[in-house]
Design a protein around this nucleic acid. Structure first.
Length: 348
DNA sequence: AAGTGTTTCAACCGCATGGAG
DNA sequence: CCTCCATGCGGTTGAAACACT
C-alpha cells in the first residue's frame, strides 16, 4: 500500500539509484520542484512525489552539509532539544545544512546514549532518579561549564536553566559583539516545575501556574527603550536590534513588531504610548541596569505575555508553545559558544 | 573467513495541518 | 461546513555497514 498521493501509480520504493538521483537533480535544478506530486512524471521517475521530496530535502539538496556533526552542532542540538523536545524540524532550523531526519538520527544513535550515560533523561533532560552518582556528576559538569550559554542549577528543589545572553551573542557570528547591544546577561527559566522564575541582573519575571503574567514597565522613563512584543523577550538580543542599535535616538523607543526578527532592520521607531498599558508591553532597558518585574494575577490558566501571545502554563515540552519559543531563538550559534569545549566528554 | 549481533541512517508510514473548491 | 489534496512532520523500519567472536 502506497501513499494516498501515489496509490494510483506504480511506484518504485527503497534506495534511490544514482540514475534516479541524477534525473531528480536535473529536473529540479532546471525547473524547480513546483508541485511535488507532479515531479515524478515530469522528471521521468517511477516514484511518488513524497519520496522525491524526501530524497531532495534529505539528500540531494545542494546546500546540505555532509559529514559528522561537530561538537558545536551537538551541543546546539542538546540545548535546543532541552527546550523544544522532539521537534526535529525546528531543531534542524538552527543547524544550517542539516535536515530534521539527520538530526533525529544523530539524536537517537548518539546523543541519547550520551545523556543516559551521564545520568540524564534524554526526554526531559532531568536527572535520572536511579543514577545518583552519575547524576551528581552530570549536574556539576553542566553547572561548572562557564563557557556554555546554558547552565543548569539543581541546587534548589527546582531546576533552573540559565541562558547567558552575552555568551550567546558573543557566539552569534557574524553580528557585532559590542557591549552596547544589551544589558541583559542571563535569562533563566524553569522548564518543568510549576513555579516559574525568570531572572537576570536586569530582567526578572516570576510566577506560578494558573496565573496570568502582566508585564510592568520600568517606573522611570529612559533614554532608550526596546519594547518586546510578539517575538518575546529574546528579541531584544536579535540581530536586527543589534544592527540598528546605533540608530536609536535619545528619548526614543524602538518598537519591535511581530515580524521584525529576520526581516531587514525590522525595527520601527515609535514613541512609547503609556495608554497601551503595562499589559501590552515588556520593556528592556538599554545602557542602564534596572529590574523589570513581571507580576502575575489569577485570571487564566496561561501566562499572557502580551495581548496577542500566550504561553502555556508550564514549560513542559508537552505543553509549551513551541512556535512562540522558536520564534525567539537564534539561528545556529545562539546556544553554543564556538570556543567552548564540550563538557559532556563522552564517546559516541 | 564465517557467523552473529549491533549500529547507522535512508526511506517509509501515518497523521496533522492548511488551502482550495 | 465538508471533502480533497499537497505538504510537512515525527516515529518507525529495515538494509547496509560495522564490530565482535
Amino acid at each position: 500500500m502506497g501513499h494516498h498521493c501515489c496509490s494510483k501509480q506504480k511506484v518504485k520504493r527503497g534506495l534511490w539509484s544514482p540514475e534516479e538521483d541524477e534525473k531528480l537533480i536535473r529536473h529540479i535544478t532546471s525547473h524547480g520542484h513546483g508541485c511535488w506530486s507532479s515531479v515524478p512524471k515530469l522528471a521521468g521517475l517511477q516514484r511518488c512525489g513524497k519520496s522525491c521530496r524526501l530524497r531532495w530535502i534529505n539528500y540531494l539538496r545542494p546546500d546540505l552539509r555532509r559529514g559528522s556533526f561537530t561538537e558545536q552542532e551537538e551541543r546546539t542540538i542538546i540545548d535546543v532539544h532541552r527546550i523544544l523536545g522532539n521537534r526535529w524540524a525546528q531543531i534542524a532550523k538552527h543547524l544550517p545544512g542539516r535536515t530534521d531526519n539527520e538530526v533525529k538520527n544523530f539524536w537517537n544513535s548518539c546523543i541519547k546514549k550520551k545523556l543516559i550515560a551521564q545520568g540524564l533523561d534524554p526526554n526531559t533532560h532531568n536527572l535520572l532518579k536511579n543514577k545518583t552518582n552519575n547524576s551528581t556528576k552530570a549536574k556539576t559538569n553542566y553547572h561548572q561549564d562557564s563557557t556554555s550559554v546554558f547552565t543548569i542549577d539543581t541546587s534548589t528543589n527546582k531546576e533552573v536553566i540559565s541562558m547567558d545572553i552575552k555568551a550567546a551573542l558573543a557566539s552569534f557570528s557574524p553580528f557585532p559583539h559590542g557591549s552596547n547591544t544589551t544589558t541583559c546577561n542571563t535569562y533563566n527559566y524553569t522548564p518543568i516545575v510549576p513555579n516559574i522564575e525568570y531572572q537576570n541582573p536586569t530582567f526578572t519575571w516570576s510566577g506560578q501556574r494558573n496565573q496570568t503574567a502582566i508585564t510592568t514597565p520600568p517606573s522611570q522613563s529612559s533614554d532608550r527603550n526596546h519594547i518586546i512584543t510578539q517575538n518575546s523577550m529574546l528579541d531584544f538580543a536579535s540581530s536586527s536590534l543589534m544592527e540598528s542599535s546605533t540608530n536609536i535616538r535619545q528619548g526614543e523607543t524602538e518598537y519591535i513588531n511581530e515580524n521584525s526578527m529576520w526581516h531587514g532592520t525590522g525595527i520601527e521607531p515609535t514613541t512609547l504610548n503609556p495608554a497601551n498599558g503595562p499589559e501590552e508591553l515588556m520593556q528592556v532597558q538599554q545602557g542602564e541596569q534596572f529590574p523589570i518585574q513581571t507580576n502575575f494575577c489569577d485570571q487564566e490558566d496561561v501566562y499572557k505575555i502580551n495581548h496577542d501571545q500566550t504561553v502555556e502554563n508550564t514549560f513542559d515540552s508537552s505543553n509549551f508553545d513551541f512556535d512562540f519559543v522558536d520564534s525567539t531563538l537564534m539561528p545556529c550559534g545562539l546556544y553554543t559558544n564556538v570556543n567552548s569545549m564540550d563538557q559532556l566528554s563522552w564517546d559516541c
